[in-house]
Amino acid sequence: MNHATDEQIESLAEKIKRSDKRAYDDFFRLMYPHLTGFAITYMRDKSMACDIVQDAFVILWQKRFGIDTGKSLKSYMYQMVRNRCLNELRNRSKEVVSSELAENNTISEMVIENQNNDRNSLGSLFREWINALPERQKEAFELSRFEGMDHDEIAGLMNISPKTVNNHIVAAMTQLRKYYKQYKQKNSIPDE
């Protein structure tokens, strides 16, 4: 996830627990770019991602006495940011989903119909296809693809086994290939 050594972070965690504000600042400087990038993967909005990461750091300071120095503070922060992102997305999607359902379209129908729209580049089609993946598959795939995380890191974050992470990613890519094939057939691009 980033380049600070585990020992460095461990010693920062202990200092933060003892209310060492300077260690806390160092930890912020160390983690902020990575955590923000991570949050952007979920939120796709930089200012929102920054807000969420800052919230997480406020909470870290408030709960500093409860820091478990036996566990990785880095993973703790990633997990907190992930939870806050998912909550935010869930709150938001309640509105979106209900309006989508009102139109009585299944998601895949919408996706395929949209392909006829010329203004869509292949990139934005891929974006829609990824968005149409089941939530967990999408998350595992995006963390792997955009964050460059390995299966163990994703497994720890999503609280599932590395095997399941792998299954999610394979399923996601298989589904994306299906969409892509349909798209190529419709636009009569020959399969190489």
Binding site: D25, R29, Y32, P33, K46, V58, I130, M173
Partner: peptide
């Protein structure tokens, strides 16, 4: 597929040191 999906990566410029300090001040 992997390559094409990469084009949909969120558009991030790296967070600059100035942004980090601004973030810290806000915090």
């Amino acid at each position: 597929i992997w390559l094409l999906a990469g084009s949909t990566a969120p558009d991030v410029q790296d967070i600059s040191p100035i942004e980090v300090e601004n973030g810290l001040n806000a915090l």
